[in-house]
Design a protein around this nucleic acid. Structure first.
Length: 638
DNA sequence: GTAGGGTTAG
């Protein structure tokens, strides 16, 4: 191979080793320096072509192995190995060369050669520390190739031969281990006094974090403050962000930046986790603060694909869709994640047409959709009422894109069919699923029954959903609302009794608005805000104006049609909007809400947007509603 | 001079 700087002179490897007369640094040391700088071709040329006096020092060889590995030159590695035997460094006298070779063969997917090399080492006459690093290298190699059984077989051999293990051994084993074994390794680490080391604790935090945040948090909490480094913070923060504990993730972020952080500065990894949590919560001010930090302190962030994707996702899901689009357009390189973030954002805003176009553009750029992109597309179709497109893309999953629909895709389809009023079809789709339906699927059907006031199918969905998620209060509330809407008060009483028996409380609704850098949070019927008096006065005034304008039937939910319409409590979004109107003169008021907007608030906000000539952008639990001029961007389809 | 920790989208 002409491009192979090492094997091209295969016959002269031992005679043509180079020196560098002009350097006071020994040329062997220069090989190492060049390799360390990533100048692998130069390192190998020097080793191959220079004046071979003095002959290469043993310490040049591991560096050369690393260079060959980086350049994917297995034949070069083999030559160095041959040289190692000739010089008596192998099979067991140079621990560094052994480690480099074992790791190199693993990285080059030549595990049998690595095993062979290890097997050649004479157990009795090799120093235990050399054996230890050799085993560590190969265990790490097997872990790299996701071969847990091979890792543990080596570990067992190691212990049977009386070879000591260390933190490196266990840090290779922990991520490879089946989850049930991790606590055993953890206690082994504790017994030998290694669990407190920063790198070991970090490894445990990240592995525990894959299955919930509790154990990850425990390890983090048990670390002495001073030994927590950036990686410790990143690992524990990500553990929370990835397990849906966004509030805790943001709490950790603020602790990290404060006294507890001990001067640790967030990096791109930190910010990816923080932005993801902001996107989930709708924590606009925190996310915008992160963006500012990136611009000031991480000038290279635009070349960091993951970080850019997180920022796009944040903007797409927290209100500034144009900013998301702008960032997307400016990206030098996009991945499917970038596309999916934007697709999902347009979907949440109800721009189904844009979503479908984006999806087609993505495909025409040669990006094959994955399951996540399809969830974004299908849920966009459902939010926009694109019934035919939704069905088309669902069936294209298998026929065109070779993707097997998951339970989430079925959930989107049940939602799509259900919203379109095809409740029986939706129910039949659930029965046809090749996998067991989960709570979300039945919940989607239940939600559709709420929209279409269908008690019969609603009861069926309810029965299933409470078996699967007995403690999710939202489903009981949905069922009770179906009974309310259809005038079946005994049903309401029955569901409320179930909730009481099971100790379930409706999750309190809350909304917030940001104003002048501060977050103003409102709960339903909440009087704690300093401006509460004025806010309530405005809501009551608006209620009266709305009633006049709509002829006294404000709610669309069929709430008591007779005589004086009672105010339907003071839902948090009304309070938040009123606060926004009192404190700003124009422009859009952005409200983030934890639950879905109810029918009454929805028609209230539509009418108020016309009366007051203001625009409200409300992000609820599943999408955006933009109220302007008496209408909502969801076209009453949500 | 060798082996070794953290990352996004529904």
């Amino acid at each position: 191979m002409a491009t192979d700087p090492f094997t091209s002179t295969a016959t002269s490897t031992t005679t043509a080793f180079a020196g560098d007369a002009n350097s006071t640094e020994s040329w062997s040391a220069r090989v190492r320096t060049l390799a360390r700088l990533g100048r692998h071709r130069e390192a190998l040329s020097l080793l191959r072509d220079g004046d071979p006096s003095p002959p290469p020092h043993a310490l040049a060889l591991p560096a050369a192995v690393i260079s060959c590995t980086s350049l994917s030159l297995p034949s070069g590695v083999a030559q160095i190995q041959a040289l190692g035997y000739k010089r008596g460094l192998l099979p067991s006298s140079d621990a560094y060369l052994l480690s480099a070779l074992l790791s190199s063969y693993s990285r080059l997917s030549l595990l049998p050669r690595a095993h062979q090399l290890l097997d050649e080492m004479p157990l009795a006459s090799t120093p235990p520390t050399t054996l230890r690093t050799a085993f560590n290298s190969l265990i790490s190699g097997c872990a790299m190739h996701a071969l847990p059984a091979a890792c543990f077989l080596l570990f067992r051999r190691m212990r049977a031969a009386g070879v000591p293990f260390d933190a490196v051994t266990l840090m290779a084993l922990v991520p490879a281990a089946p989850h049930s074994v991790v606590p055993q390794l953890h206690s082994l680490l504790g017994k030998v006094g290694l669990a407190a080391e920063t790198t070991v604790a970090n490894c445990l935090i990240s592995v525990y974090g894959r299955r919930g945040a509790a154990l990850a948090r425990q390890v983090f909490n048990e670390m002495p403050m001073a030994s927590r480094d950036l990686v410790s913070w990143n690992a524990v923060l990500s553990a929370h962000a990835q397990n849906g504990l966004a509030v805790d993730a943001l709490d950790l972020y603020s602790r990290m930046r404060g006294h507890d952080g001990n001067g640790v500065e967030p990096d791109a990894v930190t910010l990816v986790g923080v932005l993801s949590s902001c996107a989930h919560l709708g924590a606009r001010s925190v996310g915008l603060g992160v963006e500012q930090y990136m611009q000031e302190r991480l000038p290279g962030f635009r070349t960091n694909l993951q970080l850019c994707n997180s920022l796009i996702n944040f903007h797409a899901r927290c209100g500034s869709l144009p900013r998301a689009q702008q960032l997307f357009d400016e990206m030098p390189r996009k991945s499917i994640v970038s596309w999916t973030a934007l697709i999902t954002g347009y979907g949440m805003h109800g721009h189904g047409d844009v979503t479908v176009n984006l999806f087609q553009m993505m495909v025409s750029e040669g990006i094959r959709p994955d399951n996540v992109a399809m969830v974004g597309l299908l849920s966009a179709c459902s939010h926009s009422g694109l019934y035919d497109e939704g069905r088309k893309y669902f069936s294209a999953m298998e026929s065109t894109y070779q993707l097997r629909p998951t339970v989430e895709h079925y959930t989107c389809m049940v939602d799509l069919l259900g919203r379109a009023g095809r409740l029986k079809e939706a129910r039949d789709l659930i029965s046809s699923m090749p996998m067991p339906a989960d709570g979300a699927v039945w919940g989607a059907l239940l939600g559709a029954c709420k929209i279409h006031k269908n008690v019969e199918i609603g009861e069926e969905a309810f029965e299933h959903v409470i078996k699967l998620e007995p403690s999710n209060a939202g489903y009981y509330v949905l069922m009770a609302n179906i009974y309310t809407d259809t005038g079946q008060l005994e049903g309401v009483v029955r569901v409320r009794a179930m909730m009481r028996e099971r100790g379930l409380k409706k999750e309190p609704g809350c909304s917030y608005v940001e104003h002048k850098g501060r977050v103003h949070l409102f709960m339903a019927d909440d009087h704690s805000h300093p401006q509460a008096k004025r806010i309530y006065e405005l809501v009551i005034k608006l209620e009266h104006m709305v009633k006049e304008k709509t002829g006294g039937t404000a709610g669309t939910d069929g709430h008591s049609k007779k005589a004086p319409v009672p105010l339907i409590g003071f839902h948090s979004e009304k309070l938040a909007v009123a606060f926004g109107m009192l404190n700003t003169d124009g422009g859009e008021i952005v409200v983030i809400k934890n639950l879905r907007v109810c029918g009454d608030c929805h028609s209230f906000l539509k009418t108020v947007s016309a009366i007051a000539n203001r625009a409200f952008l409300v992000r609820d639990a599943s999408r955006f509603h933009r109220f302007e001029g008496g209408a909502c961007s969801c076209k009453d389809y949500w």
